[in-house]
Design a protein around this nucleic acid. Structure first.
Lengths: 163, 163
DNA sequence: CTAGCGCGATTGACGTGTCAACCATGCTAG
DNA sequence: CTAGCATGGTTGACACGTCAATCGCGCTAG
């Protein structure tokens, strides 16, 4: 795609004005969308997107409980981030932490009844909001394109090995 | 598009599994992209995306200076957020605040030489990263589709008047 | 036995974002 | 004149994220 001209040494790999416009539109819009969904979730359920991710994972887990580092891997968070977040969720009674019997240096994260109920109550409104603000905003073709775009971007993000 | 069935009253407006998958892909990928760009900007220029937005606006402003609330409007931030951010940027010498002569209760934000230079140095690498991670990751058709998707999403976000 | 290593997890410092309260100034109505 | 209001801006409290340092515990090499 960019290998046509021989003079592609430097300074030429900058985006055009139009490409930059698309980028900024894309950036700002996804940001607004994220924030609108977060705000609705907060208002309807007093949960943050982070809370939702943790509660979702625990709800689907065996015994509604999971080892901390498994949970981190599962939702793609750093352990430190998770630890901070679990601290806040524990204060609110959504989850409970306890030492892992079978593995002394591990911590088990348990879903509390409060947490389970909060998650249950939040699900339908949250999914409805996703449908309204994302799915219904796009034509089926655009929705499909969104999936492809995500895949393409991810493919370019992953292999950051080379200089 | 969704107006075919008469029974679309309630509970049916939840996303399908496939729609949800696309949404999660889209969400996670844009998040990763944002964070990778932020990280590169930080490493290359010691600037955050917020710093960049502020410096860009001031660089393009008349006299490299702007009233605080104009700046907020221009980059689409809440005044409070801007005030906090300007405080941090002022500590680092990137900008300077001073009372507005012509309008006593206003504050002028000035770009300092340090800030101008930091912005100048960050521009090319940052634009290059946008090109590499966003523009070059997509086919021209996908890039175009991304623009349309952003427009469609924004159109659905804006009019939040009705229940 | 013990020194050191690796690993799971936590902590602290700090930048960032939102919300609500506040402060200061000018304008307007009585 | 003054009481109140609107407006521009700041502040404080708190949630969230990242980075680097630390802690605790088991394992293994000497």
């Amino acid at each position: 795609m960019t290998r046509a001209t021989p003079e592609r040494r430097r300074g030429r790999q900058l985006p055009t004005t139009e490409e930059l416009r698309v980028w900024r539109d894309f950036l700002e819009t996804t940001e607004s969308l994220r924030s609108e969904l977060a705000s609705r979730l907060q208002v309807e359920s007093s949960l943050s997107p982070g809370d939702y991710a943790v509660l979702l994972a625990l709800s689907e887990a065996q015994d509604r409980q999971m080892r901390s580092s498994q949970l981190a891997t599962h939702i793609g968070w750093e352990r430190s981030r998770l630890s901070h977040h679990l601290g806040r969720m524990e204060r609110r009674g959504l989850i409970r932490r306890q030492e892992c019997r079978t593995f002394p240096r591990g911590a088990e994260v348990h879903l509390t009844p409060t947490g389970a109920e909060a998650f249950r109550a939040s699900t339908v409104p949250h999914l409805r909001a996703i449908r309204e603000l994302f799915v219904d905003a796009l034509t089926p073709e655009q929705l499909h394109a969104a999936g492809e775009i995500a895949a393409a971007l991810r493919a370019h993000l992953g292999p950051q090995r080379e200089e």
